[in-house]
Design a protein around this nucleic acid. Structure first.
Lengths: 138, 138
DNA sequence: ATCAAGTAGTTTGATAATCAAAGTAATGGC
DNA sequence: GCCATTACTTTGATTATCAAACTACTTGAT
């Protein structure tokens, strides 16, 4: 595996750039990075329990509670009881939150289109294939 | 471009997972995420000016000043005068910082190896090619 | 059925990160 | 030489985050 080293650095570089892009986009919207991350996760996965969300955001549940309080106040998300476990609470996007998610996703979409311009149709297909496999391994 | 939509979501999912992984790794080391990010950037790019670093970290220079102060105190980085512009200051890794970078990079390397196991040699090569092109377009 | 141990989420009090704005020093065009 | 600009630092206020204590619920052992 002689490529791994280069591959590793390409991934890190890509990650750093995405991270920086995300920050700069968020600045313009006037919403915190953590909130956008939350909206993104809920948009992708659908409703999640506080615990799951906190884990994915790499934050304590205490921190998440205050974050979600604010987002509920801003009508971006709502809390719902969990059917089978009354200790748990499901967090889900409201219509307003979903709209915001779609707007943010549109920006991502545009970025993806931009940075893949130099890739052939075939390369794009293979890239998707690779990423899908990698996401499974994670 | 019918793939773009799927590709976009695969990228976002990959980004979210990397982000979550980075957080969890950092927790174990007892160093802040911002500091690891700084070390990572300096490790990849070499010495950077405060302004450049602040931009890449998506943070104001005021915030960076206090961050770098702490890292200098921890002997992870050092400030050096800029040759041609006396207003600027170059931040670079110390030996201790470089060692930490290498340790962190080793973890990344391991992660990369892990998540690319299901990719063929050919796929890995193509993935690297795609990422390299994309990083250029960014 | 009961009870102890564990889990999900909230609250609280303290600490750390971040920002905007003002301040300092150096550059560069006129 | 002078003034607008740039790079960085300092300051004061705001916000985010954590660890730990607390409440409510679940699960497993007896």
């Amino acid at each position: 595996m002689p490529h791994i080293h280069q591959l590793n650095h390409a991934i890190i570089e890509f990650y750093e750039k995405l991270s920086s892009w995300e920050h700069s986009v968020v600045k313009d919207v006037g919403i915190s990075l953590a909130q956008v991350h939350t909206i993104e996760l809920l948009g992708i996965h659908g409703a999640l329990r506080m615990k799951e969300l906190a884990e994915k955001l790499a934050v304590t549940t205490g921190t998440l509670t205050v974050q979600i309080d604010k987002m509920v106040a801003a009508e971006l998300v709502e809390r719902r009881p969990h059917q089978s476990d009354r200790r748990s609470i499901l967090v889900d996007l409201t219509d307003k939150g979903r709209t915001l998610y779609q707007q943010h996703d549109e920006l991502h979409h545009q970025l993806t289109a931009d940075i893949t311009t130099s890739l052939s149709e075939e390369e794009q297909k293979l890239l998707l294939q690779c990423l899908t496999k990698m996401n499974r391994e994670f």
